[in-house]
């Protein structure tokens, strides 16, 4: 498929990016472009691509004000996965992020892009949900913070408003140290979208805290609080019931990758496996 004609502009600052977007109707921000460019070939009409990769402040991984970590919107997934502080404090995110595509693709793709694409199959989205991350979005007038839990609205739909640019994603200090166990079912082992995946994370001071997130089994990535609460309340003896809670929470569809029945079944199996691995 041919890539239709479009104008390419690279911004040097967030302000310039916002201006470049505003002056051209039909403009889109682009981070890695691994989703956007593919979509432009087939369905998405874009008149101007505003590349944010050359904006220095968006290429940083820094300590956030509350002691967590803020990841700039242009940071490549491979850089994220290799970052010592992220690896040490947010291993669950790294475990999911290194499942996206192939290594070469992760040199280009970004966490913010994966999030903005709002795919129910996004591997990193489930980690951000589980880790209760926050998205910082900016437009010409203001910046606002959107909890990831409120970010996804449906397949390809997010809470971002027209003209809002995600500048960074903040992982809170309270989620540091959560260990992750990511179980993914796909048609092949390498380079495939998850047909269904489950992230179980465990951490917290004192009594263990659990997080259970599901991929590709609902219109958005999904967090299953009922399963988490069961585990927190009753411990490993509740694994079977927590898995059942996850099974009930999802609403999968049948598509080229798997049937709805199989997906639901796998949510139970993989949730139990994840919980058992961390219990």
């Amino acid at each position: 498929m041919l890539l239709p004609r479009f104008e390419y502009r690279a911004a040097r600052t967030v302000g310039e990016a916002l201006t470049l977007w505003a002056e051209q109707p039909g403009a889109r921000f682009m981070a890695g472009g691994t989703d956007l460019i593919a979509q432009m070939r087939t369905r998405r009409k874009v008149s101007r691509v505003v590349d944010i990769k050359q904006i220095p402040e968006l290429n940083q991984i820094r300590e956030s004000e509350d002691g967590g970590v803020a990841i700039g919107a242009a940071v490549a997934l491979s850089a994220l996965c290799e970052h010592p502080r992220v690896r040490e404090r947010y291993p669950a995110l790294v475990e999911c992020a290194c499942q996206v595509g192939a290594y070469a693709l992760r040199n280009r793709a970004t966490l913010a892009g994966n999030l903005c694409n709002a795919s129910p199959a996004a591997d990193t989205a489930v980690a951000l949900l589980a880790l209760e991350a926050k998205v910082v979005a900016t437009n010409m007038d203001r910046s606002r913070v959107i909890p990831v839990e409120e970010f996804f609205l449906g397949p390809g739909k997010s809470a971002l408003e027209e003209g809002e640019l995600v500048t960074e994603i903040v992982l809170p200090a309270r989620s540091a140290g959560f260990q992750g166990s990511y179980h993914r079912q796909s048609r092949r082992r390498g380079m495939d979208l998850a047909s269904v995946a489950v992230l179980v994370a465990k951490g917290g001071e004192g009594a263990p805290r659990y997080r259970v997130g599901l991929v590709s089994v609902a219109p958005t990535p999904l967090r299953v609080r009922a399963a988490e609460e069961l585990m927190e309340r009753e411990g490993p003896s509740a694994i079977a019931r927590a898995a059942e809670a996850a099974r009930l929470a999802c609403s999968p569809i049948t598509d080229a990758r798997a049937s709805a029945e199989y997906r639901r079944e796998m949510v139970g199996v993989l949730t139990a496996r994840g919980l058992a691995a961390l219990a």
Binding site: R187, R188, R189, G190, M191, D192, L193, A256, R257
Partner: peptide
């Protein structure tokens, strides 16, 4: 290669939807 049983259109005519083995498989 999945051909729709009603309209005869290919349903997985891309490397995203039609899988061949990788080194991991």
């Amino acid at each position: 290669l999945v051909i729709d049983g009603k309209d005869g259109r290919p349903r997985n005519a891309s490397l995203m939807d039609y899988k061949i083995p990788t080194a991991l498989d």
